[in-house]
């Protein structure tokens, strides 16, 4: 049977790719952020995942406002990155796992989540940057991936409570997959930040810290807030915490923290990272 071995949640800001392309990992501005992943690299060497199920949000690469799904799952044999408008170098293609994808799709739809199914998907910085943080060096990716995309662009967005339930459904779906696979969950984006409006530059350290702490002790804590309340507390892009929440919910009720990092700022963002294991 497939087994969930852990959950990594991390910020995904485009500037990370630029820093990698320029080799700035040791620069004072970036060092603390990149160093935070060293314990994750050691953990990954031991944990050896086969597949990563990655909860992320598309920022106008694969989806546009003409047709915008709330929840989408990729079922492709391969996923490529592409130019998002800033000439940041693309990364090597990712191998998919269509059989696992279709199992997840069948399972979550049976569970009441009427998701969009995608046999072609280009993946943006929100998927590529976290992968490059976990497996640096530009070598072929050592895991296959299943992208789970959530709309955080166009309101109405799915509520935190709904995302939590989707995560639980994904967790059940993975646990019922008959193949022996080691599955890593990933949730990308956040933490507090706002790019648009007179409120640009908004950051809320106190809320971020509370949210991160809640993911071990009380993972459903943030579901008490409406979407607008979360925009108020985390910024209009800080709402990406929904992606962390979904991945965390898939991990199951109990979790223990292996490592975590929180650093202000990278680019406009309060950057966060956590590695959790299911509670024994």
């Amino acid at each position: 049977m497939a087994k969930i071995i852990g959950c990594v949640t991390t910020s995904h800001v485009p500037a990370i790719a630029r820093a990698i392309a320029r080799g700035e990992q040791e620069d004072p501005y970036w060092k603390e952020w990149f160093d935070g992943f060293k314990p994750v690299h050691r953990w990954l060497e031991q944990a050896k995942p086969d597949v990563a199920v990655i909860v992320y949000n598309d920022h106008g690469l694969n989806f546009f406002l003409d047709k915008l799904p709330t929840f989408a799952i990729g079922a492709a044999a391969e996923y490529q990155s592409a130019d998002e408008g800033w000439n940041i170098p693309t990364v090597l293609p990712f191998k998919g796992d269509p059989e696992l994808s279709w199992h997840l799709i069948n399972s979550v739809v049976t569970d009441g989540f009427d998701i969009t199914m995608c046999q072609e998907m280009v993946v943006d910085h929100a998927l590529c940057n976290p992968m490059a943080l976990l497996w640096p060096g530009g070598k072929p990716w050592p895991v296959r991936i299943v992208p789970v995309e959530i709309n955080t662009v166009q309101f109405p967005l799915p509520s935190a409570a709904r995302c939590y339930q989707l995560g639980e459904a994904l967790g059940r779906a993975i646990a019922s997959y008959p193949q022996d696979l080691r599955v890593l969950l990933m949730g990308t984006g956040g933490l507090s930040h706002q790019l648009d409006g007179e409120r640009a530059g908004f950051i809320n350290k106190e809320f971020d810290k509370k949210f991160m702490a809640s993911l071990t002790a009380d993972p459903a804590w943030v579901t008490r807030y409406s979407t607008i309340e979360l925009v108020e507390r985390t910024g209009s892009q800080g709402i990406e915490l929904l992606l962390w929440l979904t991945a965390r919910a898939a991990l199951g009720s109990g979790a223990r923290e292996i490592t975590a990092n929180y650093h202000i700022p990278i680019s406009n963002t309060a950057a966060g990272m956590m590695l959790l294991e299911p509670a024994a």
């Binding site: 662009v153 166009q154 109405p156 706002q194 648009d196 409006g197 640009a200 925009v231 209009s236």
Partner: peptide, 14 residues
């Protein structure tokens, strides 16, 4: 159109 409840923020609604 959503009420615009967060100052300095335009909710990107329908």
């Amino acid at each position: 159109t959503t009420r615009q409840p967060v100052p300095g923020t335009t909710i990107f609604d329908g």
